[in-house]
Design a protein around this nucleic acid. Structure first.
Lengths: 135, 135
DNA sequence: AATAGACTTGCGAAATATTCGCATTTTATC
DNA sequence: GATAAAATGCGAATATTTCGCAAGTCTATT
């Protein structure tokens, strides 16, 4: 049983064939698949799966905080498994997504929120850039 | 002629009654109106205006960099005039949007992008928080 | 291993947000 | 004022996501 399946069980979700497939797809994805992407990959394993189930499952996983839903200004959502905290830099020429993490940034965000009188619950940061010529 | 109208003229856009109304609505907004909001406010001035025109105008203004389009994870877009650079903290209890600016943050973002080998073209940062009890 | 009952699924329809085609109107320019 | 290009309104089309419901499946309990 995968770690994702365990977390689902702990949340009281029934482990159906469709959910197992979707969790497998998510666990194996190294990109940030859209709902359609997840649907396509899941269909390769179980052709009978419906896109409504993919939507419903991803919503559930999002509520459980097991995945992160992104809206990279494309008009649709992309998902990734929520394990290590990080942010994204989107290459404006290729669409490639680079992940990064920065402790100084984390501290600064906390401080900004606190200074505004707020407890920081969540946040999102996206950088959009173009590749620099190698120097 | 408002400053927004001037910028439109400079871009070669024709100044129609509808555009004038939409620009006025945007210029007077102190919140972050959705397309529907802009449409409603514009209709109070000119009842014949169509929502398609509002969509088209906002898209144009976005391309011209005269407005900023936000997607605060609500399933629709909100707009604001692009004057002073700033970011947003969204109050999770009330939905209120607090604007802020932080130079240290700006410098850090530039540095992160550069270290990853990218020129920073654009970025977005949103903090989501809950109000701290006054101490 | 049969059963109950709640949960889940697939399907198509519906809801939402946004874009588009096209005939008509308006604008800026001459 | 005539002209060409641009903009508008309308309704239809698209795209993404949600929903209702009948049928199927899972888990716990006999």
């Amino acid at each position: 049983m995968s770690s994702l399946e365990q977390r689902c069980a702990k949340a009281g979700l029934k482990m159906t064939g469709q959910r197992r497939v979707i969790l497998k797809v998510l666990g194996e994805a190294s990109d940030h698949p859209s709902v359609e992407d997840v649907y396509d990959r899941a269909k390769e394993v179980d052709d009978s799966i419906s896109i409504a189930t993919v939507y419903r499952t991803l919503s559930l996983l999002d509520e459980l905080d097991m995945v992160i839903r992104h809206e990279f200004q494309e008009g649709y959502s992309r998902y990734e498994v929520n394990d290590e905290h990080h942010h994204h830099l989107i290459d404006l020429d290729t669409g490639k997504v680079v992940e990064f993490q920065n402790d100084e940034l984390e501290a600064l965000k906390e401080k900004i929120a606190r200074d505004l009188g707020y407890e920081l619950i969540d946040h999102r940061l996206e950088l959009y850039g173009k590749k620099l010529p190698k120097s």
